Computed example of a mutant assay.
Amino acid sequence: MTPMDNASQRRHAEPRQQVVKQAIHWLLRLRNNAANARLRQQCDVWRAEHQEHELAWQRVKTLQAELSNNFPAVPGALDTLENSAHGLGRRQALKMLSGALLIGSGAWMGKDVAGWQQWTADFATNTGERRGFQLPDGTRLELNTASAVDLDYTPQQRLIKLTRGEIIITCGGIDQGASFDRPLRVQSHHGVFEGVDARFILLQGPVCTQLSVTAGRVAIHSPIASNGGPIQVLPGQSYLIDHRQARLAPALDMDAGAWVDGLIVPRNMRLDNFLHEVGRYRTGYISCAADIADLRLSGGFQLDNTDKLLTVLAQTLPVKVRYRTRWWVTIEQQV
C-alpha cells in the first residue's frame, strides 16, 4: 500500500469536524426529546445517509462515555452542560459540549482542536464548495459556495439564520413532532421569511437579499407590506429585500437554483455579470475588459472546474482568457 493510500485511509477514518458537530446536535436533541419517536427516526435516517455520519455518531457516543469517565468528580457532567444550555441557547450548548468532549479526547482530535474553538457557524461551505444537509425536522438545506447558516431550534421555534452566501430550503408545513405549531422561518441580514410546503432560494448580498420561490409559498414577515401584513410570494416570483422594503425583482438573467446541480445557466446575461457569478466559485480576481462587458451569453456551464468553464467560454464568445497569475484572470477581446 502506498503512502498516499495510507493517508487516504486516515482521512476517511476520522469524520470531518462539521459532521461531528452535526452528530453532537442530534445527541442533544434526542436527549432532550427522549420520547419523540419521529425525531429518533430522523436521526437514524441521517446516520444511514453516509458512512461518515455513522462514524461521527459512534465517535460522539464514545466521547460521551469518556466524558463521564474522565470527570468522576462531576456526576452527570453531560446533563449539567445541557441544563446550562436552557439559559444559554443551543449554540452555546454545542460549544460547551464540544469543549468538554475535546478535553476528554484530545488525542483523537489532535491538532484540530483549535479549529473547533474558532467555529462560528453550524453549517458552512468553502469557496467553490456546495453541500446539502438534512435537518432534524426533515427540512432539506443546500448551501452554495462560501455560505454559512446557524440553526436556532427550540421548543418554541424553528429558525435558520443565513449569515452569508446562498441557500436553498425545501420544507414541509408545521412541525408535527412539536406539541404546538412551529413554522419554519429563515432570517437573513435583511428580512425574515416563512416557508410552507415550499422550495425557495435566498441569496444574501451586501445591500439586499434576493428571494426566489420555485414551489409552495413563502411569506416575507420583515419588512412587512404597506398594509401591515406579510408579503406572500408564489412560485416563479422573485423579490429583492433590503432593510426598508421588499420589491419584485426584475426578470432574472440566470437560473437561480441551477447551482445545486453544479451548473450556472445564464439567460442572455451580460459577460461582466456572468464573470461576477463565476468568481464566487474560485479564489482570486476575475474580470473582463470594458469593451466586451456587454457581450451576452446563454446556455449551461459546469461549475466544478472553473478553469475548464473559462476555456468553454472562450469557445462560445469571441474572447480570450489571460492568466496574469493562477488567481488573477482577465477576459479580453479576441483579435
Rank of each mutant, 00 (worst) to 15 (best):
L101M: 02
A85D: 05
Q51E: 07
L88R: 05
A114I: 11
G110P: 14
G115I: 06
A114M: 08
T80P: 10
W108C: 04
G138E: 03
Y153A: 07
K95N: 15
T145Q: 07
F123P: 02
K95V: 13
Q118C: 06
L135E: 12
R131I: 04
T62P: 03
M96G: 00
M96D: 04
E82D: 10
D152I: 04
T80W: 13
G106T: 15
G104P: 03
R59M: 00
L67Y: 09
Q118G: 08
D79F: 00
T139E: 05
N83T: 02
T62Q: 09
F71M: 09
L135N: 06
Q51H: 11
A48L: 00
W108R: 07
R91I: 05
A107W: 10
A146H: 11
G104H: 09
D152Y: 10
T145A: 12
A85C: 02
Q58H: 02
T62S: 13
A124S: 14
R130V: 01
I103R: 15
Q134T: 15
Q134K: 08
R90S: 10
S105T: 09
E129A: 03
L102N: 06
P75R: 03
F71L: 12
G99N: 08
L63K: 11
A65N: 13
T80V: 14
L81A: 15
